[in-house]
């Protein structure tokens, strides 16, 4: 008979591992990014409580920025709903591909909606790339530990941006804005799957071009087209006798 304390130990060690792995760039990145949102929210006329609650509930930078802009400009509820639904679509594939990595049993459970709420590009890349190296029982607590610290860092960053005038040297402040995109891109490049690496290369080139045509539709169409291209290219390589997908 399995010892229940064994499962608890695995859960605890997975959670602690997630906390440990979040220290460093995964924490600095959201602080830097959300500092900008804090400044923007203050200038848009939001109060501090509303700013922090918006970070904790919306938890997606592009949606947050649009929310602050629309609130400041007095957008109608329907306009806000339609705009934010369009911008937030990017959360669907992220959630679709992350949840199967962390769930304990096949199929849908209601708590997965709560887990999806914690997703950010940082936690997505961590669980889909590094999560494969963890034993399945540790993935969920790992994801929760990692994501909670990243969320706390984001809240801290928004608070700094809202309450403190930017006291950082401009060179450091500007460079921190490079940190998250560079970290997420390099993390994705370490994916063990050739198909994922090809999708990253194709998407990195093609999606920004598509977004020049239309920022929201271009993102969605580009993601589907170039992701599928990476997937098919890796499968074709497999069929021709290569390996590594």
């Amino acid at each position: 008979m399995a010892d229940p304390s064994d499962g608890e130990d695995r859960g605890r060690s997975g959670f602690l591992l997630g906390l440990r792995d979040s220290i460093g760039v995964p924490v600095v990145g959201p602080i830097a990014a959300l500092t900008g949102y804090g400044v923007m929210a203050r200038e848009a006329g939001l109060d501090l409580l509303l700013t922090l609650v918006s970070v904790a509930t919306i938890w997606a930078m592009p949606v947050l920025m649009a929310f602050a802009e629309l609130t400041a400009s007095g957008g109608s509820p329907i306009l806000v709903l339609v705009t934010l639904l369009a911008i937030g679509f990017r959360n669907l594939p992220m959630s679709l591909s992350a949840i199967p990595m962390i769930r304990r049993k096949p199929g849908f459970r209601w708590n997965q909606i709560l887990l999806a709420q914690l997703l950010s590009p940082m936690s997505w890349v961590q669980i889909t790339v590094f999560g494969r190296q963890l034993e399945p029982a540790k993935r969920l607590p790992y994801y929760v530990g990692f994501s909670l610290v990243v969320l706390a860092a984001g809240l801290f960053g928004a608070w700094i941006g809202f309450t403190l005038t930017l006291g950082l040297p401009p060179a450091v402040g500007l460079s921190l804005l490079l940190l998250t995109p560079l970290f997420v891109t390099l993390m994705m490049a370490t994916s063990p799957k050739l198909s994922s690496r090809l999708a990253l290369v194709f998407g990195g080139i093609g999606v920004p071009v598509c977004m020049q045509w239309h920022s929201e539709l271009g993102l969605i169409i580009g993601g589907f087209v170039f992701g599928t291209l990476g997937f098919l290219a890796a499968r074709m390589r497999d069929r021709l006798g290569g390996s590594g997908t």
Binding site: P181, S196, G204, G206, V207, G223
Partner: peptide, 18 residues
């Protein structure tokens, strides 16, 4: 699942490069 990851990888990668 691999295809879903590829689409997300392309989408997030594109956003980061942008």
């Amino acid at each position: 699942f691999d295809w879903c990851v590829c689409v997300t990888q392309a989408l997030v990668g594109g956003l980061m490069v942008r």
